[in-house]
Amino acid sequence: MLRYLLSQSASLLITMLLVIAMVFFGMRLLPGDPAQIRAGLDATPQQVESTRRALGLDRPLAGQFVAYLGGLLQGDLGRSWRQNQPVTVIIASRLPVTLLLAGCAYLLSLLLGFGLGILAGSLPGSGWDRLVRGYTTVGLSFPEFWIAFLLILVFSVNLGWFPLLGYPADAPLPTRLMHLALPALTLALPRSAQLARLTRALLIGERTADYVRTARSKGLSVLAVTRHITVNTLPGTFPLAALELGGLLTGVIIAEQVFSLPGLGQLLLGAIGARDYAIVQGITLLAILVFTAVNWLADLAQAAADPRIRYS
């Protein structure tokens, strides 16, 4: 196990280095010049040049990269030229919103996904099954921003149950959760649909297994058999569940945009547009870490849940 973790850490380090290099040079290869964006169109070429110097972008790329890596080793992610603040401070201020939103969305998608998947998979062909299949089709085919608008119209404008937009960072938790309910639901719908689909398919596949027939024929109740099937199939959904958690990182961009939430997604989007390299690099680093950690956890959870899988 220790060996497994060590080898994984080594590969994580290499992955991170590669991705950092890709983001670092990729962003700089993109057309679009931060010095020009900052200086604006009124600026003379000389002013753009002095802005470039002020941003440290006139130095050779390799030197910039080495300096960046050096900073990273000391926990310094650089400075945002747009906000004139350290990247770590900015990310730390945005993280809580995004974490809470992603957490709520993930919890919802697990509950809905597994719940509906088990319901449909246990009663294939029933009215419930058809209902769930309809749900998954809708959930998978509607774009997120469209779901967001529908939810806003129904629950916020018409019924007035939830606030329209925004996030009061200083309010008590229940108030904040009210603000996050619709964005979380927006993110959870398509993800739960995917999960429900897979869970249902796995359950239905497992129903025809030999042990199920044996268990039924020796008189075990439907409920008990369903429990066995479920326990045996659920680990198969973990990788997807983990992938979805990673995918939430991109999903939050849309949700934060529509609902005006000051999270990492909007920060990233703005930073890409303004070529605020340090922010883009910082968020990408964070995303790799989260993504890798989640996949590890999924591997470990699968191993724990399924005795046939062991890492060494």
């Binding site: 921003f145 945009q257 703005g270 890409i272 547009g273």
Partner: peptide, 14 residues
Amino acid sequence: CYNTCDSTLQPAQV
């Protein structure tokens, strides 16, 4: 005005 960010993924623009 060149608030570069806001709209890249703005739904209304899709």
